[in-house]
Protein backbone atom coordinates (compact mmCIF):
# COMPACT_ATOMS: atom_id res chain seq x y z
CA UNK A 1 0.00 0.00 0.00
CA UNK A 2 1.44 3.37 -1.02
CA UNK A 3 1.97 5.94 1.70
CA UNK A 4 0.69 9.21 0.24
CA UNK A 5 2.19 11.54 2.85
CA UNK A 6 5.66 10.04 2.65
CA UNK A 7 5.51 10.24 -1.12
CA UNK A 8 4.50 13.88 -1.11
CA UNK A 9 7.20 14.77 1.34
CA UNK A 10 9.80 13.03 -0.71
CA UNK A 11 8.46 14.67 -3.85
CA UNK A 12 8.93 18.13 -2.34
CA UNK A 13 12.53 17.31 -1.55
CA UNK A 14 13.07 16.08 -5.07
CA UNK A 15 11.53 19.22 -6.53
CA UNK A 16 13.51 21.54 -4.29
CA UNK A 17 16.78 19.88 -5.08
CA UNK A 18 15.80 19.96 -8.75
CA UNK A 19 15.29 23.70 -8.57
CA UNK A 20 18.57 24.14 -6.74
CA UNK A 21 20.44 22.29 -9.42
CA UNK A 22 18.80 24.19 -12.26
CA UNK A 23 20.06 27.39 -10.70
CA UNK A 24 23.50 25.80 -10.42
CA UNK A 25 23.51 24.70 -14.06
CA UNK A 26 22.30 28.06 -15.25
CA UNK A 27 24.93 29.76 -13.13
CA UNK A 28 27.63 27.58 -14.63
CA UNK A 29 26.44 28.37 -18.14
CA UNK A 30 26.38 32.08 -17.44
CA UNK A 31 29.75 32.06 -15.73
CA UNK A 32 31.44 31.28 -19.01
CA UNK A 33 29.73 34.26 -20.60
CA UNK A 34 30.54 36.37 -17.57
CA UNK A 35 34.24 35.67 -17.96
CA UNK A 36 34.00 36.57 -21.64
CA UNK A 37 32.52 39.94 -20.75
CA UNK A 38 35.17 40.57 -18.09
CA UNK A 39 37.93 39.66 -20.51
CA UNK A 40 36.75 41.98 -23.25
CA UNK A 41 36.13 44.79 -20.78
CA UNK A 42 39.56 44.39 -19.27
CA UNK A 43 41.34 44.44 -22.60
CA UNK A 44 39.29 47.39 -23.73
CA UNK A 45 40.10 49.33 -20.60
CA UNK A 46 43.80 48.63 -20.94
CA UNK A 47 43.85 49.81 -24.51
CA UNK A 48 42.20 53.18 -23.88
CA UNK A 49 44.33 55.98 -25.13
CA UNK A 50 46.73 53.72 -26.94
CA UNK A 51 44.64 52.76 -29.94
CA UNK A 52 44.97 55.64 -32.32
CA UNK A 53 45.95 56.38 -35.89
CA UNK A 54 49.61 56.61 -34.99
CA UNK A 55 49.40 53.15 -33.52
CA UNK A 56 47.95 51.75 -36.69
CA UNK A 57 50.49 53.33 -38.98
CA UNK A 58 53.79 52.90 -37.16
CA UNK A 59 56.33 50.15 -37.06
CA UNK A 60 57.28 48.49 -33.79
CA UNK A 61 59.85 50.38 -31.79
CA UNK A 62 61.78 50.12 -28.55
CA UNK A 63 60.01 53.23 -27.41
CA UNK A 64 56.41 52.33 -26.54
CA UNK A 65 55.10 55.76 -27.43
CA UNK A 66 56.24 55.39 -31.01
CA UNK A 67 55.40 51.75 -31.57
CA UNK A 68 52.68 50.49 -33.86
CA UNK A 69 51.57 47.38 -35.71
CA UNK A 70 51.70 48.37 -39.33
CA UNK A 71 54.03 45.57 -40.39
CA UNK A 72 52.12 42.96 -38.40
CA UNK A 73 48.81 44.07 -39.86
CA UNK A 74 49.99 43.73 -43.42
CA UNK A 75 51.66 40.45 -42.62
CA UNK A 76 48.32 39.15 -41.38
CA UNK A 77 46.55 40.37 -44.51
CA UNK A 78 49.11 38.74 -46.80
CA UNK A 79 48.95 35.50 -44.87
CA UNK A 80 45.17 35.39 -44.85
CA UNK A 81 44.94 35.99 -48.60
CA UNK A 82 47.52 33.36 -49.53
CA UNK A 83 46.20 30.77 -47.11
CA UNK A 84 42.66 31.18 -48.44
CA UNK A 85 43.98 30.92 -51.98
CA UNK A 86 45.70 27.61 -51.31
CA UNK A 87 43.36 25.97 -48.88
CA UNK A 88 39.98 26.61 -50.51
CA UNK A 89 40.51 24.66 -53.76
CA UNK A 90 42.37 21.79 -52.13
CA UNK A 91 39.89 21.53 -49.27
CA UNK A 92 36.83 21.67 -51.49
CA UNK A 93 38.44 19.30 -54.00
CA UNK A 94 39.08 16.77 -51.25
CA UNK A 95 35.53 17.07 -49.98
CA UNK A 96 34.11 16.60 -53.48
CA UNK A 97 36.28 13.56 -54.01
CA UNK A 98 35.22 11.98 -50.71
CA UNK A 99 31.53 12.69 -51.12
CA UNK A 100 30.89 12.33 -54.84
CA UNK A 101 33.58 10.17 -56.36
CA UNK A 102 35.12 7.83 -53.86
CA UNK A 103 33.57 4.39 -53.39
CA UNK A 104 32.88 3.51 -49.78
CA UNK A 105 35.96 1.41 -49.19
CA UNK A 106 38.89 1.09 -46.80
CA UNK A 107 40.82 3.89 -48.48
CA UNK A 108 37.98 6.34 -48.02
CA UNK A 109 37.59 5.46 -44.36
CA UNK A 110 41.32 5.78 -43.88
CA UNK A 111 41.38 9.22 -45.44
CA UNK A 112 38.38 10.27 -43.35
CA UNK A 113 39.90 9.08 -40.06
CA UNK A 114 43.17 10.70 -41.00
CA UNK A 115 41.43 14.03 -41.52
CA UNK A 116 39.72 13.80 -38.12
CA UNK A 117 43.06 13.10 -36.48
CA UNK A 118 44.75 15.96 -38.30
CA UNK A 119 42.10 18.28 -36.88
CA UNK A 120 43.35 17.42 -33.40
CA UNK A 121 47.08 17.91 -33.95
CA UNK A 122 48.47 20.82 -31.87
CA UNK A 123 49.11 23.91 -33.94
CA UNK A 124 52.74 24.07 -32.91
CA UNK A 125 53.36 20.67 -34.47
CA UNK A 126 52.15 22.12 -37.77
CA UNK A 127 54.68 24.87 -37.16
CA UNK A 128 57.43 22.29 -36.79
CA UNK A 129 56.29 20.64 -40.02
CA UNK A 130 56.44 23.99 -41.75
CA UNK A 131 59.90 24.58 -40.38
CA UNK A 132 61.30 21.26 -41.51
CA UNK A 133 59.47 21.04 -44.83
CA UNK A 134 58.85 24.47 -46.25
CA UNK A 135 61.49 26.61 -44.61
CA UNK A 136 64.36 24.14 -44.86
CA UNK A 137 63.75 21.16 -47.15
CA UNK A 138 62.02 23.21 -49.85
CA UNK A 139 64.28 26.18 -49.12
CA UNK A 140 61.54 28.79 -49.04
CA UNK A 141 63.20 30.50 -46.14
CA UNK A 142 61.17 32.13 -43.39
CA UNK A 143 58.85 33.69 -45.89
CA UNK A 144 55.17 34.48 -46.13
CA UNK A 145 54.90 31.62 -48.60
CA UNK A 146 56.20 29.11 -46.07
CA UNK A 147 53.85 30.54 -43.48
CA UNK A 148 50.84 30.41 -45.78
CA UNK A 149 51.55 26.81 -46.78
CA UNK A 150 51.90 25.85 -43.13
CA UNK A 151 48.59 27.47 -42.22
CA UNK A 152 47.01 25.87 -45.29
CA UNK A 153 47.88 22.41 -44.05
CA UNK A 154 46.57 23.36 -40.63
CA UNK A 155 43.28 24.71 -41.99
CA UNK A 156 42.58 21.90 -44.45
CA UNK A 157 40.91 19.48 -42.01
CA UNK A 158 38.49 22.15 -40.83
CA UNK A 159 37.59 23.22 -44.36
CA UNK A 160 37.24 19.65 -45.58
CA UNK A 161 34.88 18.72 -42.77
CA UNK A 162 32.74 21.83 -43.29
CA UNK A 163 32.64 21.34 -47.06
CA UNK A 164 31.70 17.68 -46.66
CA UNK A 165 28.77 18.63 -44.48
CA UNK A 166 27.61 21.25 -46.95
CA UNK A 167 27.85 18.80 -49.84
CA UNK A 168 26.04 16.10 -47.92
CA UNK A 169 23.16 18.44 -47.26
CA UNK A 170 22.38 18.77 -50.97
CA UNK A 171 19.23 16.64 -51.46
CA UNK A 172 19.86 13.40 -53.32
CA UNK A 173 16.83 13.89 -55.56
CA UNK A 174 18.50 16.82 -57.26
CA UNK A 175 21.48 14.70 -58.18
CA UNK A 176 19.22 11.93 -59.46
CA UNK A 177 17.26 14.35 -61.57
CA UNK A 178 20.47 15.62 -63.16
CA UNK A 179 21.87 12.14 -63.80
CA UNK A 180 18.59 11.13 -65.41
CA UNK A 181 19.03 13.99 -67.87
CA UNK A 182 22.30 12.51 -69.02
CA UNK A 183 24.67 14.65 -67.00
CA UNK A 184 28.13 13.28 -66.23
CA UNK A 185 29.35 13.16 -62.65
CA UNK A 186 31.40 16.32 -62.95
CA UNK A 187 28.47 18.12 -64.56
CA UNK A 188 26.28 17.15 -61.64
CA UNK A 189 28.90 18.37 -59.18
CA UNK A 190 29.58 21.61 -60.94
CA UNK A 191 26.02 22.57 -61.85
CA UNK A 192 23.95 21.16 -59.02
CA UNK A 193 26.00 20.20 -55.97
CA UNK A 194 28.50 23.05 -55.72
CA UNK A 195 26.06 25.93 -56.23
CA UNK A 196 23.80 24.54 -53.53
CA UNK A 197 26.63 23.74 -51.13
CA UNK A 198 28.51 27.00 -51.70
CA UNK A 199 27.20 29.03 -48.73
CA UNK A 200 28.12 26.26 -46.31
CA UNK A 201 31.54 25.92 -47.89
CA UNK A 202 32.19 29.65 -47.77
CA UNK A 203 31.09 29.92 -44.16
CA UNK A 204 33.36 27.03 -43.18
CA UNK A 205 36.32 28.55 -45.01
CA UNK A 206 35.88 31.96 -43.43
CA UNK A 207 35.73 30.39 -39.98
CA UNK A 208 38.84 28.33 -40.70
CA UNK A 209 40.63 31.51 -41.80
CA UNK A 210 39.63 33.35 -38.67
CA UNK A 211 41.12 30.56 -36.60
CA UNK A 212 44.30 30.50 -38.63
CA UNK A 213 45.09 34.18 -38.33
CA UNK A 214 44.73 34.10 -34.56
CA UNK A 215 47.45 31.47 -34.26
CA UNK A 216 50.87 32.63 -33.14
CA UNK A 217 52.45 29.28 -32.32
CA UNK A 218 52.97 27.85 -35.79
CA UNK A 219 54.30 31.14 -37.11
CA UNK A 220 56.71 31.42 -34.22
CA UNK A 221 57.98 27.93 -34.99
CA UNK A 222 58.81 28.87 -38.55
CA UNK A 223 60.47 31.97 -37.15
CA UNK A 224 58.38 34.74 -38.44
CA UNK A 225 60.15 37.75 -37.03
CA UNK A 226 58.98 39.44 -33.90
CA UNK A 227 60.50 42.77 -34.77
CA UNK A 228 59.91 43.83 -38.33
CA UNK A 229 60.24 47.35 -39.61
CA UNK A 230 59.04 47.06 -43.16
CA UNK A 231 55.90 46.02 -44.97
CA UNK A 232 56.32 42.78 -46.90
CA UNK A 233 55.79 43.23 -50.65
CA UNK A 234 56.26 39.72 -51.98
CA UNK A 235 55.45 36.21 -50.81
CA UNK A 236 59.14 35.54 -50.37
CA UNK A 237 59.64 38.34 -47.87
CA UNK A 238 60.03 37.79 -44.18
CA UNK A 239 57.02 38.79 -42.13
CA UNK A 240 55.29 39.02 -38.82
CA UNK A 241 51.66 38.73 -37.83
CA UNK A 242 49.35 40.39 -35.31
CA UNK A 243 49.34 37.61 -32.73
CA UNK A 244 53.14 37.47 -32.69
CA UNK A 245 53.39 41.22 -32.28
CA UNK A 246 50.95 41.05 -29.40
CA UNK A 247 52.92 38.19 -27.86
CA UNK A 248 56.10 40.19 -28.16
CA UNK A 249 54.62 43.16 -26.33
CA UNK A 250 53.03 40.98 -23.64
CA UNK A 251 56.39 39.40 -22.95
CA UNK A 252 58.04 42.69 -22.05
CA UNK A 253 58.05 43.76 -18.43
CA UNK A 254 57.40 47.47 -18.89
CA UNK A 255 53.82 48.43 -18.25
CA UNK A 256 53.55 50.55 -21.38
CA UNK A 257 54.04 47.51 -23.55
CA UNK A 258 51.07 45.88 -21.85
CA UNK A 259 48.93 48.74 -23.11
CA UNK A 260 50.32 48.28 -26.60
CA UNK A 261 49.43 44.61 -26.40
CA UNK A 262 45.88 45.48 -25.37
CA UNK A 263 45.54 47.87 -28.28
CA UNK A 264 46.86 45.21 -30.63
CA UNK A 265 44.35 42.73 -29.23
CA UNK A 266 41.50 45.12 -29.97
CA UNK A 267 42.67 45.39 -33.58
CA UNK A 268 42.91 41.60 -33.86
CA UNK A 269 39.47 41.12 -32.35
CA UNK A 270 37.99 43.62 -34.76
CA UNK A 271 39.50 41.77 -37.71
CA UNK A 272 38.09 38.49 -36.40
CA UNK A 273 34.72 40.02 -35.69
CA UNK A 274 34.51 41.30 -39.26
CA UNK A 275 35.39 37.88 -40.65
CA UNK A 276 32.78 36.14 -38.54
CA UNK A 277 30.17 38.76 -39.39
CA UNK A 278 30.97 38.17 -43.07
CA UNK A 279 30.44 34.43 -42.55
CA UNK A 280 27.06 35.00 -40.94
CA UNK A 281 26.06 37.44 -43.69
CA UNK A 282 26.96 34.94 -46.38
CA UNK A 283 24.95 32.24 -44.69
CA UNK A 284 21.90 34.44 -44.16
CA UNK A 285 21.93 35.88 -47.65
CA UNK A 286 22.01 32.46 -49.27
CA UNK A 287 19.40 31.08 -46.91
CA UNK A 288 17.06 33.89 -47.91
CA UNK A 289 17.68 33.18 -51.58
CA UNK A 290 16.91 29.52 -51.10
CA UNK A 291 13.63 30.42 -49.46
CA UNK A 292 12.52 32.78 -52.21
Amino acid sequence: MKNATAFRQHLRTRQLSGRFFVALFLGATLSGIFVLVVLVADVFKDSLGWLDWQFLTSYPSRKPQEAGLLSAFFGTLWLMALTALFSLPVGVGTAIYLEEYSPDNMLRRLIQTNISNLAGVPSIVYGLLGLGLFVQALAMGRSILAGALTLTLMSLPVIIIAAQEAIRSVPEVHRLGAYALGATRWQVVRNIVLPTALPGILTGTILAMSRAIGEAAPMIAISALVYLTFIPVSPLDRFTVLPIQIFNWVSRPQEDFAHLAAAGIIVLLIVLLSLNAAAILVRNRYQKRAEE
Binding site: P171, H174, L176, G177, A180, L181, A183, I192
Partner: peptide, 17 residues
Protein backbone atom coordinates in the same frame (compact mmCIF):
# COMPACT_ATOMS: atom_id res chain seq x y z
CA UNK B 1 25.02 9.12 -70.00
CA UNK B 2 24.16 8.60 -73.66
CA UNK B 3 21.49 6.09 -72.71
CA UNK B 4 19.97 8.65 -70.34
CA UNK B 5 20.10 11.27 -73.02
CA UNK B 6 17.81 9.18 -75.17
CA UNK B 7 15.70 7.60 -72.46
CA UNK B 8 14.34 10.21 -70.07
CA UNK B 9 12.91 9.80 -66.57
CA UNK B 10 10.32 11.49 -64.40
CA UNK B 11 10.45 10.70 -60.69
CA UNK B 12 7.79 9.96 -58.13
CA UNK B 13 8.19 13.13 -56.14
CA UNK B 14 8.70 16.23 -58.30
CA UNK B 15 12.33 17.28 -57.97
CA UNK B 16 12.95 20.59 -59.74
CA UNK B 17 16.43 21.97 -59.26
Amino acid sequence: TEVRYRIGMVFQKPNPF
